[in-house]
């Protein structure tokens, strides 16, 4: 179902895979992760590459009693202090003892991200990380992902089906429809004829909308003080 796909990703780079439903985004991610084998072609990885993965569909069986800390322990060896630190970094310090199936969509995404980060990955792979979140929640999450990349220097591969919200947090966009139809910076892609053909409408009007955020939201959309989180990352001129 996929052919003529060529894609490379360097440390510290955020690449976003966009494409309509059925374009093969998730299949490509599974091939890159080594979960399914490609019939042809090859995947080259740095030796001993540590990957942190945030899967697309995630539901804990309600019959399984498990709290967030127990879930994070499944990532491999980690200390309580490490798990506490990563939850604090993701602005969800209170969730450590919460039962997994009581989490909201936004909380669950952060807990999944926490598990990926516990492995100190060199590559972070996120399959539709913002699904089920409102616009503010999505912007917050993408901001966070960009910050984490800045802090750790890891490469990031994201899958998304809408470009305009990911744009600011992306270095390179790969547009997929069974094959790679165009590659480039978000600004270039949003005006690329192949992209416009796939997504039907000219998104220029709002795709290029640069949202200069002068405040920060918490998980519930409330505005919180910006001083602490912005000082550490050198300003929040993200979209």
């Amino acid at each position: 179902m996929l052919n003529a796909v060529s894609l490379s990703l360097r440390a510290g780079q955020i690449v976003t895979l966009v494409g309509p439903n059925g374009a093969g985004k998730t299949t490509l991610v599974q091939v890159l992760l080594g979960l399914i084998a490609a019939d042809e072609g090859q995947v080259e990885r740095r030796e001993g590459l540590v990957i942190g993965y945030v899967p697309q569909r995630f539901a804990v069986p309600p019959s399984l009693p498990m709290d967030v800390d127990g879930f994070l322990r499944l990532a491999g060896k980690s200390s309580l202090a490490e798990r506490r630190a990563v939850l604090r970094r993701l602005d969800v310090p209170d969730l450590q003892g919460a039962a997994l199936h009581t989490l909201s969509g936004g909380e669950l995404q952060r807990v999944l991200l926490a598990r990926a980060l516990l492995r100190t990955p060199q590559l972070l792979v996120l399959d539709e990380p913002a699904q089920g979140l409102d616009v503010h929640g999505q912007q917050e999450l993408y901001r966070l992902i960009a910050e984490l990349r800045d802090e750790s220097g890891c490469g990031v591969l994201m899958v998304s089906h809408d470009l305009h919200l990911v744009m600011a947090a992306t270095d390179q966009v790969v547009c997929l429809e069974q094959h790679v139809c165009c590659v480039g910076t978000p600004e270039a892609i949003s005006q690329h004829p192949e992209y416009l053909r796939l997504f039907g409408t000219d998104l220029r009007g709002f795709a290029l909308y640069q949202h200069h955020h002068d405040h920060v939201h918490d998980l519930h959309g409330n505005v919180v003080s910006t001083s602490s989180s912005c000082a550490s990352t050198g300003g929040c001129n993200h979209a």
Binding site: Q30, L33, G34, L35, I51, Y53, P55, F58, V60, P61, L64, M66, F71, L74, A75, G76, R115, R119, V125
Partner: peptide, 15 residues
Amino acid sequence: LLAMTVHESLAAVEG
């Protein structure tokens, strides 16, 4: 077993 019960692909990626 717990890891793969929670999410099989995630468990596989984690080795």
